[in-house]
Design a protein around this nucleic acid. Sequence first.
DNA 1: TACCACATTGACATCGTTGTGTTATCCTAG
DNA 2: CTAGGATAACACAACGATGTCAATGTGGTA
Lengths: 336, 336
Amino acid sequence: MATLKDVARIAAVSPSTASRILHGGAIRVSSETRARVERVARDIAYRANSSARSLRTRVTRTLGILISDSQNPVYAQMIVGANEAAAEHGYSLLMMSARDDARRAAFLEMVAEDRADGLILADAGLDDVWVERLRATGSPFVLVNRPGPPGAASVMMDDARGATMAVSHLIEQGHRDIAYLSAPLSTDVGRRRLEATRDVLAQHHISLSDRRWFECGFAGEGAAAAVDRLLWHKEPITAIATGSIVAAMVAIKALLQRGVSVPDQVSVVGFHDNPFAQYMTPGITSVRMPLEEVGRLAVLSVLALIEGAEPRPVIVANPPPVLVVRQSVVRRGAGG
Amino acid sequence: MATLKDVARIAAVSPSTASRILHGGAIRVSSETRARVERVARDIAYRANSSARSLRTRVTRTLGILISDSQNPVYAQMIVGANEAAAEHGYSLLMMSARDDARRAAFLEMVAEDRADGLILADAGLDDVWVERLRATGSPFVLVNRPGPPGAASVMMDDARGATMAVSHLIEQGHRDIAYLSAPLSTDVGRRRLEATRDVLAQHHISLSDRRWFECGFAGEGAAAAVDRLLWHKEPITAIATGSIVAAMVAIKALLQRGVSVPDQVSVVGFHDNPFAQYMTPGITSVRMPLEEVGRLAVLSVLALIEGAEPRPVIVANPPPVLVVRQSVVRRGAGG
DNA sequence: TACCACATTGACATCGTTGTGTTATCCTAG
DNA sequence: CTAGGATAACACAACGATGTCAATGTGGTA
């Protein structure tokens, strides 16, 4: 590999001069020298060694990103946004899956080891202990869709608004007997969505009885069982709202398999949107949250922190949540 | 940040000794010295600076991975496998989306700039020119599900076998009037799957007429239009095989929307499997390919190259492709 | 007592890049 | 004719970790 020293030697200048010409900003060099150095660099295909540069400058132009589950399309979409924003700013993403705590621990080390300039924690299941530990180090980091302790940066979506839109849609369509399949209540998003759902229902003088809500996993675990319970106990529901799109998919499948028509007998609304929602039959009516934008803003937030900005919580305002109307929700009584 | 020098000073040893104790292997040091150094390192939370280490050792313990489209669940699954294998070997993955050629160019620079020890190219749309360019540099790299020039490492799945299984299943179920929605023919996998499909059909004396096959995108682009053409021209097909799972989803949706019952009137088989396939109605019968394993082996291959092994093409044998039977395929004539 | 073998530790150069501080050169004004 | 200022380029010391080679200390043996 050609080094800066090689370039300098061949171009008959000092390494310092070569460095300033090739990587420094607009500095004063005679145009002949500049041309000569640039020519040599091109000729011998010089590439700056990033380890050496990072060692010297203490900047890696790399961000770590911790993901709960890279198979979940929700994260996949966030990653897309993060990737774009990072690339636009000349940064790379070092990705890690939060499979277990050992993995998480290794991830948090990244800044201490100078492998990354900052961290993005998109790990719904991340325990507060980790956050505190990380905060103690003073490294730049941002939490994604999860509030942090005061003084920590975070990027959150307006889950309450999204959940409100979903349930309001059901109510507007005349539904009053509504069940709710919640996302895990161990996660902040799960709690926020459930709470917002309860609030809207309450505003319409509907209470969410314990027999009508169930906690399910982000990958829809437990949703089929919940449907069974609803049917078994003959809960007279006409609609189901969910805290995740996968739960909606699983619920619809379960309903159909048990001979309940969707949406004619039971309407279902999802939370989050992804390409597969439209291929389902019926197409799933769901609230599209600004996932790519969250990824983007997460990157921009860490970059701001790195530049010395004060950490602050951000709520993504644009684009706002959008209700994507497909076929899984109909007006109450409109069906068979 | 505490450096090795700090540890050495506090523990009253030389940096060399500290280095050997903390990072060197089983070397001879008195156990008191060792204990003292380790204690100090822990106390002041010493973390080795990875830039310095990489500069010195020319090893980054990082692999670059280039992905066509991180939203495509096919890649998401591969990434999972790659992530696991990398983590098991103490490596991290630097991820990049192959949005355009500028992005690809930046990616290929990673090894030259000493940011990664090797590269994984999981980019179905990658032009041969790039591969040649990369090969000229002599950097360790592995191509995923795409053959390379002689002397390049690659990890491929047995797409031919998978495609064969899918179509054979249709034939076994009595279908002879079969349409095929191909993956992009600009990609090697697209061509391999189409060819294998043709071969099986030919073995059963069925020819795939031009009116019965269509080229679609990996995200199902064109599949709905293809269904329209089939219906418009009243092609008397009873089954559709596809070169991607998304194309199968889109086709099923299109058929249902146009009043054609699936699987009663037309059976559909997919290629690749993912969690959503089972939530569709009908559940999609599809061939599950060993995607995670491909990710794993891709990592292991680059690591082998880095260790000096000869580059060689690998075909993933285990687990083999599996036909996942759900509801989208039935015996010909068994339906309405 | 002298010497050697071995165990333990340290001094120092090095990896490639950057930036500070300085030198060399030329020009212009007094 | 020279002081002073601008310009162009360089020397050198870091950044933090590693590994080679040399040095020190210890104990045993002839």
